[in-house]
Nucleic acid binder design. Structure first.
Lengths: 109, 109
DNA sequence: TAGCCACATAACATGATAGTTATATGGAGA
DNA sequence: TCTCCATATAACTATCATGTTATGTGGCTA
C-alpha cells in the first residue's frame, strides 16, 4: 500500500495552480458546491452524490461542448473534481480533500 | 477612508492565481522567505528589511535580465511582493499579508 | 557633465491555452 | 442491429505567456 503523494514540489504546486487559475474553472467549482441549486433536476444520477452532468455544466458555462468538456478534463486531471460515468452521462463532483490540500499548499507558499 | 478591497470575485482570484501559477515565481517567493540564506551579501540595502535585489534574483533564476525583471513585475503587480527602490537598486520582499490573503481565498474555493 | 550600472521597455520568436466546427466513439434503448 | 444522444477527440485559429536580444532610462559617482 502506497502513501498518498506528498505533492510538495514547486512543479506540483504550479500545475494545480494552473488548473485553478481560470475563471471558468473557478466558476464550475463554485457551482458544484451546490449542484441542486445551480443545475436543472436530473432524472438519472443523484446530484448530491455524484454532482452535475457534463452537459448541464457546459450549457451553463455558455461555451461549446468541446470547450466545456476540456475544462472538466483539466479539473479532472488535476484531481480537483471526481467524474462518475453512468448511463451515458458523466457526472462531476468536487474533490473536497484535494481542494483542502491545495489550500494547505498555498498557505505554505 | 476606504475599506481594504474584499477581493472576492472569481476574476480577482483568477488573476492572483495566474501570478502564482509559475514555477519561477514560486521559486522567487520561496527564496525570499530567507534572503540572507539564498542570496549573496548586499553592501547596500538590508536584506532582512527590504529583501533581495533584482539582479541577484535574476542571476539565481538563470534567465535573461528582462525575463527575470518581468517575473518580478508580475509578482509586484499582483501585490505579492513589495519593491523598494534605493540607490539604483530595487529590492523585493514578500508581502506576507497579501500571501495570507491569497491562502484564505484559495481555502474558500 | 560624463560615464557607468541597474533596471525597464521594445521588438520579436515560440509554445501553451482556449475557443471554434467537424467528426469519432460508445453505450442505451427501440 | 440500428439509431440516438452524450461525450471525446481532431484540426484549426486567435490570443496569451515566456523566452530571447537590442535599446532606452535614470540615478550614482567620479
Amino acid at each position: 500500500m502506497e502513501m498518498a503523494a506528498a505533492m510538495t514540489s514547486l512543479t506540483d504546486i504550479e500545475s494545480v495552480l494552473k488548473a485553478l487559475a481560470s475563471e471558468r474553472r473557478l466558476q464550475i467549482l463554485d457551482w458544484l458546491k451546490d449542484p441542486v441549486a445551480h443545475f436543472p433536476p436530473q432524472e438519472h444520477g443523484d446530484p448530491e452524490a455524484h454532482g452535475a452532468c457534463n452537459q448541464f455544466i457546459v450549457e451553463k458555462l455558455g461555451v461549446s461542448q468541446p470547450a466545456g468538456s476540456r475544462h472538466l478534463k483539466v479539473l479532472t486531471d488535476a484531481g480537483l473534481v471526481i467524474p462518475t460515468r453512468r448511463k451515458g452521462w458523466v457526472y462531476y463532483r468536487r474533490n473536497e480533500a484535494a481542494l483542502a490540500n491545495v489550500a494547505a499548499l498555498v498557505a505554505s507558499i
